[in-house]
Design a protein around this nucleic acid. Structure first.
Lengths: 210, 210
DNA sequence: AAAAGTATGTAACTTATGTTACTGTTTTTA
DNA sequence: TAAAAACAGTAACATAAGTTACATACTTTT
């Protein structure tokens, strides 16, 4: 296990910290579509991503969903961090976007290492910064972009984390993620196809203009 | 100066830290409408709010603005934190909403105190958490609410930080903050007035249903 | 292979929001 | 004090997005 850990986090953490992570962390592996965290959950451990990608969703009180962003290898979930800290409930839902490998760290360690390892402290602060930047980007997307551009951005982001220009997704799934209706998605996807940016198939979409 | 510091941060920080803040921080006082931080600025010091309120804005590449949230006494600006850390440019603009008193801390201290004072570390992490929560709330607002409800929420938030049920603002200013047009604001404000939730005057609005 | 379920396409319509244009009023400036 | 600027109200129209309804094609189940 130390091998994958070192590969992904060796450039960030000194060996002594890697050893600690190795000894107290639990390695987990899960398929696509696995729900790691739900809204309202209390968090008792934080994930360090080794491979794969996780999508982070927000939900309003009526059950309407909205995709916030994806996180990838080398990242951790900053909402988890702050939930651990304050014994607060999760504000978000986390679902694996692809098959994923990660290491779960007990929450006590998070705060213990903050005092002990400067590199860990930097990692945590950097994670917060990255997640805030991504939230800001999510705000830009919904506040400033039209639906057609949001769809195209969604497809590109999804292609990115899946390392594939062909995305396996239905129009209905996109509608859920972007918090709109299936008919709207179908209409605008067709328009994107006519513009030559994508190609539509049953259950999949190919991005031409990546 | 230590008096106001102790009043506002005494419950958070031990005396030794308060003394340090007192000796390296600079006390500043500014009127309403003062721009503290602009997008693209490099930050060399972080603010601890003593009194007043600051509004945090986002801007897209076309210059369109959007209000994200207000911060108040006892808060600090988490974007500032992360900008300091990584020598990154500010992603947001900060403008005083009311006359404001604050203490500016040189950035080196921020990281020095992280290792030295557990209470400071908690404060920083708590600030990150609060700011993320507020960004999520901002996302909820633009993603899930209709414009009329957004306007009403805006008025209530503004009344809150100004400690006044009468808000001094023009329709045009609301339109800037919510990233829409003046005509739309006028129309929906009128509708809120007919519903009995607010009362309209020239340059001001009174909230009835607080 | 028939039936049921799932995915997509599309037309017709509704609603929310954005735009243009013009009004009158109040406030500020010359 | 006359002119200009700022503020607000409103009508008429344009556009983006959401809704309803239905058709068709492919896939899975029976």
């Amino acid at each position: 296990m130390i091998k994958e850990l070192k590969e992904n986090y060796g450039y960030l953490f000194e060996d002594s910290l890697l050893m600690e992570i190795n000894s107290v962390g639990t390695f987990k592996e899960m398929p696509e579509g696995f729900q790691l965290i739900d809204i309202g959950d209390y968090i008792k451990s934080m994930p360090l991503l080794i491979s794969g990608a996780i999508k982070i969703m927000r939900e309003d009180n009526k059950g309407d969903e909205l995709l916030l962003y994806f996180i990838e290898r080398g990242d951790t979930c900053a909402m988890t961090l702050s939930c651990c800290m304050g014994q607060k409930k999760s504000e978000i839902r986390a679902i694996t976007e692809t098959p994923t490998k990660l290491i779960m760290i007990p929450v006590e360690k998070m705060s213990e290492w903050m005092g002990k390892y400067k590199s860990w402290q930097n990692f945590i602060l950097q994670s917060y910064h990255d997640r805030m930047t991504e939230l800001l980007e999510a705000i830009d997307t919904i506040a400033f972009l039209k639906m057609e551009d949001r769809i195209f951005k969604y497809l590109r982001d999804k292609a990115m984390v899946n390392h594939n220009e062909v995305i396996l997704v239905t129009h209905q799934q996109i509608a859920f993620d972007l918090h709109t209706s299936r008919v709207v998605i179908s209409r605008l996807l067709k328009s994107l196809e006519i513009e030559g940016k994508i190609q539509l198939f049953r259950n999949s979409i190919k991005i031409l203009d990546l």
